[in-house]
Amino acid sequence: MSHHIVEVIHLRHIYPDGTIAIKDVSFRITHGESVAIIGANGAGKSTLLQHLNGCLEATSGQIRIGDMPLTKATLPDIRRTVGMVFQNPDDQLFMPTVFDDVAFGPLNLGLVGADVEKRVTEALIQVGADHLRAKPPYHLSGGEKKRVAIATVLAMTPDILVLDEPTNGLDPYARRQIMSLLQEFHHTKIFTTHDLDMVLELCQRTIILHEGEIRADGPTGEIFRNDDLLTACRLEKPLAMQGCPLCSREADTTKP
């Protein structure tokens, strides 16, 4: 039995206003995979992610995490198994200090005293933010907030990491920091992002979502070499795979 497997079976989600965000989506992500879910704005990426730990309830279809189907009864276990990092760290950080915020999850898991301290310290060290522990989250920079938001999830020792736009709004240095951090994790990782160069570096597999449906699911390199597919889905090749207009460097088609 592995908790690291994510299986989405014929998922469909209709918002109360009648918008069909996800039409019929099915995929299976196995242990240790790093998968990017990409697509244009409004393709249904964030809606899909929010189903993976029960933040949204499916209109129809099923989610399975490991051997557990996602139901009300399994929700607490699934939320511990699937760690979700939200797009906007301000939504994720709501306690008075960084320490309190990272401790929020472990305390809800029933840990007390030194165990909480240990979990928090380990998570903060892992993201290189231990020196920020006494700071209020609203005093942090964007990159620091993002790293602390990841620590809040790591402190719950999840088996699967789900990240919504992890590099969104970060400067190049902070983006690189987050990418190196994510590269070190051996969890099953699922991203949604518009940062296609990050996808190229971090994800072996890519799923393209378009208008609530899966248009492609396969090896990242193969998908990014398919120009027609990318254009049809309002996407384009990562910059690393495009030729340079200034120095006339040829596009690197061997990546990744």
């Binding site: 730990n53 029960g54 939320r79 929020f104």
Partner: peptide, 21 residues
């Protein structure tokens, strides 16, 4: 609602726990 979702995602079940016992 988003903050509440983030809280639920981290195991919030209606109880706030204090660090001090």
């Amino acid at each position: 609602a988003r903050i509440h979702t983030a809280m639920l995602a981290r195991g919030f079940a209606g109880h706030f726990h204090a660090r001090r016992q």
